[in-house]
Design a protein around this nucleic acid. Structure first.
Length: 505
RNA sequence: GCUCCUGUGGUGUAGUUCGGUCCAUCAUACCGGGUUUUCAUCCCGGCGACCCGGGUUCAAAUCCCGGCAGGAGCACCA
């Protein structure tokens, strides 16, 4: 080691002063040009609400915008009316979800379907300039020609002829699948996917927002390319499955003399806790009735996380920590849960929920005088300033969970040691004995019916029981002692009964 | 098959640009201990990794070559 030090002193003295490696925190630096502008976009397809995977895009893009005081655009890429038809309710839902996750409003919201005239004009211009041509070959015929690096017959048509074909497409005189606009590229490109790639195709299926006024719709690679340029997007952050998209678009930008944004990629993400899923498959399952809706707690959607009580901060921290690697990763919800616990624990009150209750009579031995009228306990063990809750014990009836029931001595938390014999709980002492196991409980004086929904093994299990009385409000997150965190979903006006939904341990 | 991307502990991640106190960072998980009248939170300790093989060099996680493994794209989807 000293020998190394000597060598370093001679040859590379700076290395000695180098800081010991540290974990970089936060997102990496962006490559910024002279203007210093940072304009990003998050571009989901509104064929469904956002999944957990999408939330990565929201977080990364909005955080970069925050870091550089830049802008982030929310763009709905809704130009497929057929394979992935837009879900009308998704537009506003996604906008709200974006705000909820990022904590900021998008600087602009754009719907591709409302920008059709712009795309169509650009397409016509590009045909006029000879960069694009109308191809009437079938998809399979084109594919085989492409694989052989052979130009299709349509490629040789003159601009006038292309313009004619284009007009026919626009007018709806050409059927679906019978014509497409292609961008000219070198035909000997090593990557066959890029050769004369398709930019616009015919769709006669009406769009739920703009109806059937357009017969020709741009494909993602074209629509996104034009829109990114028009909006002055400086950085694109996308999944690496879209690498070929970058390459196609770059080819188009070269034709137009535009400058392509800097592009960053992330790899595929799999959640350990959920099987494979896609927006389309989730939508299908919901429509089939397999799930109650986008916020069904079994679903890996943003709506479900929000419903269950996850904080957007936890989601943001999580994705920021993962950063932007191109590795395909498999992650566990435990990591998010852990972050969420740390965030919510300090100001979450403790409450007692007894599931599958067993009713016990509290018996005092005749020779013991110390009858207890009530107990008092903290709302939060570490924060007495959060107040106390007071329980009465006049009726001398208590409940414990069936899981905790056994004949013998146990400690009722914050109250007393008791001995259970049959249906009786015989008071021993308020002092805590040596080995008495602590369990939670409720007093019949102040508890009410409650049920909690827990997603488990693909179904939403309902556990009925009793929760201590308190001022509960819908949306409140509480910690059920010895169970975990849960959110209040509803409080019945008549009975006061509570419905909870499970968050995490 | 073609094109491309990626390989650091169980899971993620820092470090790789420009080789050097790197016997490798941090988080999470796990194990052990402490605090606590919750199985929560908190605190302490531990565990555990540079895909493989060559090469260059005084020195390689880092540079070069060759393997291998995993993933993605090859849609008139996004």
């Amino acid at each position: 080691m000293d020998r190394v030090r000597e060598i370093l002193e001679e040859t590379n003295p700076e290395a000695l002063n180098r800081e010991r490696q540290k974990k970089r925190v936060g997102l990496p630096e962006l490559d910024i040009d002279e203007t210093g502008d940072v304009i990003l976009r998050f571009a989901p397809n509104p064929n469904g609400l956002l999944s957990i995977g999408h939330s990565r895009g929201v977080v990364i893009n909005s955080e970069f915008a925050k870091m550089y005081s830049g802008k982030v655009i929310l763009r709905f890429d809704d130009t497929d009316t057929k394979v992935k038809p837009p879900l009308v309710s998704a537009y506003s839902s996604i906008e709200r979800e974006f705000e909820w996750i990022s904590g900021v409003k998008p600087d602009a919201v754009i719907r591709a379907s409302s920008r059709m005239d712009v795309y169509l004009e650009h397409a016509e211009e590009m045909i006029s300039l000879g960069f694009c041509y109308v191809c009437k070959c079938s998809a399979s015929k084109f594919k085989s020609l492409r694989d052989e690096m052979v130009a299709c017959p349509c490629r040789e048509n003159g601009i006038e002829e292309n313009l004619n074909g284009w007009k026919m497409m626009i007018l709806g005189e050409i059927g679906e699948g019978e014509g497409v606009v292609r961008v000219k590229t070198e035909l000997d490109l090593p990557n066959p996917a890029l050769r004369d790639w398709p930019a616009l195709r015919i769709q006669h299926t009406p769009h739920p927002l703009v109806g059937d006024q357009y017969k020709v719709w741009p494909l993602l690679d074209f629509q996104s390319a034009v829109e990114d340029h028009l909006q002055g997007v400086t950085h694109i952050v996308r999944g690496k499955d879209l690498m070929d998209s970058t390459r196609k678009q770059t080819l188009l930008y070269e034709h137009m003399g535009w400058k392509y944004p800097k592009t960053l990629y992330w790899g595929r993400v799999k959640l350990h806790d959920f099987g494979g899923f896609s927006t389309s498959s989730i939508r299908e399952s919901i429509e089939k009735g397999d799930f109650s809706g986008w916020d069904d707690p079994r679903l890996p959607t943003v709506a479900a996380l929000r419903r269950r009580g996850y904080t957007p901060e936890a989601i943001r921290e999580f994705w920021i920590e993962l950063g932007l690697t191109q590795k395909d990763i498999s992650i566990s919800m435990q990591t998010i849960d852990s972050k969420n616990s740390k965030i919510i624990d300090p100001d979450t009150v403790r409450r007692s929920f007894v599931g599958d209750p067993v009713k016990l009579s509290l018996i005092y031995r005749k020779d013991l005088s110390g009858i207890v009228e009530g107990v008092s306990m903290k709302n939060h063990p570490d924060h007495p300033e959060m107040g106390y809750r007071e329980w009465g014990l006049e009726h001398r009836v208590i409940y414990i969970s069936k899981n905790d029931y056994f004949e013998g001595i146990v400690r009722l938390k914050d109250f007393a040691d008791i001995e259970i014999e049959g249906k009786n709980a015989i008071f021993i002492s308020r002092e805590r004995g040596e080995s008495a196991h602590i369990i939670h409980w409720n007093s019949s004086d102040n508890c009410r019916m409650a049920e909690i929904m827990i997603p488990e093994d693909g179904e939403n299990k309902i556990i009925s029981g009793l929760i201590e009385d308190s001022e509960y409000r819908v949306g409140q997150i509480i910690q059920l002692e010895r169970m975990g965190f849960a959110k209040i979903e509803s409080v019945s006006n008549e009975s006061g009964n509570i419905s909870l939904i499970w968050l995490h341990g």
